[in-house]
């Protein structure tokens, strides 16, 4: 047994080491990246001052509003549909791959590996290779978001099934119910609220990611922001950002209300 004094001293050392380590990484990292912390810090107020002057939507920028709005709606629809399709695919795969409802060890490992692989391929890579084959179209954006979401949702759904459904699953198995009965009567009713909660989260996230995909593939709200930005129509770009803020916060609020009711 350690003496209390020794333990506290050890703990103190432990903390000091970690702080020194993290600080060291930070300083070295800044040096490698040639990141000037002071200038960076000063850039923030400068940036906001600049934003205040140039990004402020003027009476003029109102004319852009219909077009921005149309693209934004389109982006939200794309985010929703890609999430829903991804969720439908993922729930089947997750049922096959989870430890509780899965078929066998081999399939479980395979599903885990594939999901992890999909999740970790950068969105940029998906966007670019899809752009190459599917050209500049909404379908490209849809596919990029879809493939990305599938990776996330499979893993999330498998964890939900394993956390929430294993006990009831066992109970129904013991009554002599068969596989499909157990899935539909025990597993799905139990996990549906959590699944829905994740779908809502993924939709919010996809609206944000759609901006990136849009910039790369020339679709939706990202495209229009990029155009305004590159042609120095900053008031219109500011308008676009404002519209994004409103929609994302709106979606978040609606999701939270829905979660409150269903969970």
């Amino acid at each position: 047994m350690q003496s209390p004094a020794k333990f506290l001293k050890h703990k103190g050392w432990h903390q000091t080491t970690i702080i020194a380590l993290v600080g060291g990484i930070y300083v070295l990292g800044s040096w490698f990246l040639k990141f000037d912390n002071l200038n960076g810090l000063l850039a923030i107020p400068k940036a906001f001052a600049w934003l205040g002057v140039n990004f402020r939507p003027t009476a003029n920028s109102m004319e852009y509003l219909p077009r921005i709005w149309q693209k934004l709606i389109q982006t939200v629809l794309l985010a929703i549909s890609s999430t829903v399709v991804a969720a439908i695919i993922s729930i089947f795969v997750a049922l096959l791959g989870s430890k509780v409802t899965g078929i066998n060890g081999f399939v479980q490992t395979l599903v885990r590996g594939v999901a992890s692989f999909f999740r970790n391929i950068p969105l940029v890579a998906w966007s670019m290779i899809l752009l190459f084959s599917f050209k500049q179209s909404d379908f490209t954006g849809f596919l990029a978001l879809l493939l990305m979401s599938i990776g996330y949702l499979i893993r999330a759904f498998m964890e939900i099934i394993e956390d929430e459904a294993s006990e009831t699953m066992l109970a129904l198995k013991a009554t002599g119910a068969n596989y499909f009965q157990v899935i539909f009567q025990a597993v799905l009713p139990q996990i549906l609220p959590s699944i829905l909660s994740w779908i809502l989260y993924m939709i919010e996230n996809n609206v944000r990611d759609a901006t990136l995909v849009g910039i790369l593939t020339g679709t939706g709200i990202g495209f229009i922001f990029d155009i305004y930005y590159k042609s120095f129509r900053f008031d219109a770009a500011g308008m676009t950002v404002l519209a994004i803020i409103i929609v994302v916060i709106g979606l978040e609020t609606i999701s939270n209300q829905i979660r409150k009711v269903i969970l």
Partner: peptide
């Protein structure tokens, strides 16, 4: 509000 604006923007 900060979170609502995508990182890329």
């Amino acid at each position: 509000i900060i979170r609502a604006i995508p990182t890329i923007i």
